[in-house]
């Protein structure tokens, strides 16, 4: 394939992304804080910014979750609650245990000890697929697009309770074709929402890195989750797409979905999070609203570093 052809293939995507960026910026300018942000802020008023603090309506609550790798304690969380309907960010230096904590609560790794519950149900040590079915869906740091499935198939896979997924019913199309049609409609709506409709029948393997991030989010939403856990959704994404991803995340929160994300870009975190939890050496060392975290001595020492704290002081 020649270079020229490749450029032609890319162009519509780039244009779509740029268009999207302009739309998102315009929307953000017009709105100010969104309904969801206001709601989340109200719910969290009066919650003290200290590690392990109780929230008024926690969707996820973890107790004494410990994961040891040989002699190394990767995660040691005494108590952590995540407020329903918020965007909660997990921050911390590399190796602080954020992703391991993600893997533990989503059932992709087994803790040494500890328990946690989702929506009031104890889901400690439950199989990952059962946790997902309960409405707690995660994405991965390295995007996992299902390469040799089409974009539409990728999204449709997310639908839960598909009767055609049973071996006995699968050959009998009439038993599941109605459900398949309605799932397809729902998938098309999601593809439209994430501006992937032009890729609908292409293999997901032909997508750009940014489109794969969008695809992963669309696929997760197909599960109709109450809680979405995003592991570094902005990693390796260009600034334009970062803005549009942020827009999508905020819209989700405004629709009532709770979001937990691991992220390294501090500007991103401070601008969209309702609550920030800071990890260091496997423990929760601080949590609070973005403003609390910015001023927190422990966070500055462990993560933000001296330079950042100085600029904060200058601002005052």
């Amino acid at each position: 394939m020649s270079g020229d052809q490749e450029q032609h293939e890319l162009e519509p995507d780039l244009l779509a992304e740029r268009e999207e960026l302009i739309d998102v910026e315009r929307e953000l300018e017009a709105q100010g804080p969104s309904a969801g942000a206001v709601r989340a802020a109200e719910a969290l008023t009066g919650v003290a910014p200290e590690p392990g603090v109780a929230k008024p309506d926690p969707i996820l609550s973890a107790d004494g979750v410990v994961r040891e790798f040989g002699g190394l304690t990767a995660v040691d969380v005494d108590h952590l609650e995540v407020q329903r309907g918020t965007i909660t960010a997990l921050i911390g230096p590399n190796g602080a245990g954020k992703s391991t904590f993600f893997n533990l609560v989503s059932g992709f790794d087994t803790p040494t000890r500890g328990s946690w519950s989702f929506n009031g149900t104890d889901i400690s040590r439950m199989a990952a697929h059962k946790i997902a079915r309960l409405g707690m869906v995660r994405t991965f740091q390295l995007t996992k697009a299902l390469m040799r499935l089409t974009t539409l198939e990728n999204v449709m896979l997310g639908a839960t309770g598909q009767s055609g997924e049973s071996l006995w019913r699968a050959p009998l199309r009439f038993l599941w074709s109605d459900q398949e049609r309605s799932n397809q409609k729902r998938a098309d709506v999601l593809l439209e929402r994430f501006r992937l409709s032009h890729m609908r029948d292409e293999f997901a393997g032909t997508m750009s890195g940014g489109q794969r991030k969008l695809l992963e989010m669309a696929r997760a939403l197909m599960v109709e989750p109450d809680l979405v856990m995003l592991d570094e959704p902005m990693a390796g994404v260009n600034p334009a797409l970062t803005q549009s991803l942020l827009g999508h995340i905020q819209t989700l929160r405004d629709e009532g979905v709770t979001i937990i994300l691991v992220e390294h870009d501090m500007d991103v975190i401070m601008s969209i999070s309702d609550w920030v939890v800071c990890f260091a050496e496997g423990r929760v060392i601080a949590e609070g609203r973005p403003d609390d975290i910015r001023r927190d001595k422990a966070v500055i020492d462990a993560y933000l570093g001296a330079r950042r704290s100085l600029t904060q002081e200058d601002d005052k």
Binding site: V137, K144, T160
Partner: peptide, 17 residues
Amino acid sequence: RVLRSVREDEQAARSLG
């Protein structure tokens, strides 16, 4: 579809229930 998704990426299929 689930079978082919297992072929592509088991973890992704697991994460979707």
